[in-house]
Amino acid sequence: MPLIPKTLAVLLAAGFAAFAAPAQAANNTGRSAMQCVDARREGGDVAFTNRCNVQVFVVWCGDMKYSKKRCGDGPQGNSYYTHSTNVKPGEKSYARAIGEYRYAACEGGIAFGKDEIRDRPDGSFTCVPSRGHN
């Protein structure tokens, strides 16, 4: 007689497999999400609101009060935008205490680093699709 029923064993195995799977940002399509993001000034901040029904990520740079990084000071080789955030559908995220700024947005999510977007010295960008999303 088995110590645990088969159904429970299958559920436990599926649960462990989910934890063992590599963490991945939301499904990146490689498409721009500029049409999804409404960027508006709220006092000294800029609010990025996602108006689409998919998660997006926003990268930005500019004249920020609490950071010495400016446009072009990002990670080497992909260095225009310096800050990033994920924004779920209908939600809002902020760039705090920022004056002049530039931003870009893509469908999906961004993790640490900037593998999900390629930016150029002029601020133009290309969204990078997740594996299997060509």
Rank of each mutant, 00 (worst) to 15 (best):
K65R: 12
P75M: 13
H83N: 04
A95Y: 11
I110E: 11
I110P: 07
C36T: 04
R120F: 14
I117C: 12
Q55H: 14
C127A: 03
R31M: 05
V56W: 01
T49A: 09
R131L: 14
F57M: 06
K68T: 03
G123M: 13
C106V: 13
R41A: 15
N86C: 09
F112G: 15
S93I: 06
T49P: 05
D119L: 07
A105L: 13
R120E: 09
R40G: 15
F112P: 05
P121V: 04
G123W: 08
V59Y: 01
D63P: 00
W60T: 06
G123A: 13
R102N: 10
G108Y: 06
E42F: 14
K68S: 11
P89M: 01
S67M: 04
G99C: 11
I98P: 08
R70N: 07
K88S: 13
P121T: 02
V128T: 12
A105W: 07
R102M: 03
F57K: 02
G30N: 13
K88N: 10
K69W: 07
A111K: 07
R31E: 12
K88A: 13
C52W: 00
G74F: 03
T126H: 04
C61T: 03
G44K: 15
W60Q: 04
A111Q: 15
A95R: 10
C52F: 06
Y103Q: 05
R131W: 11
G44M: 05
D45M: 03
D45A: 04
R118H: 14
Q55A: 14
V87P: 09
E107I: 02
Q76D: 08
F48P: 02
Y103K: 00
I117Q: 10
V87E: 04
I117F: 07
G109H: 12
G108F: 00
E100P: 02
G108C: 07
E107D: 09
E116D: 01
T85E: 12
A104N: 00
N78A: 11
E100H: 09
G30Q: 05
T82K: 03
A111C: 01
A111E: 09
R96S: 02
G43Y: 13
G90V: 06
G90L: 00
C52P: 00
K114D: 06
T85D: 11
E42C: 09
N53L: 11
D73F: 07
P129S: 05
R40Q: 15
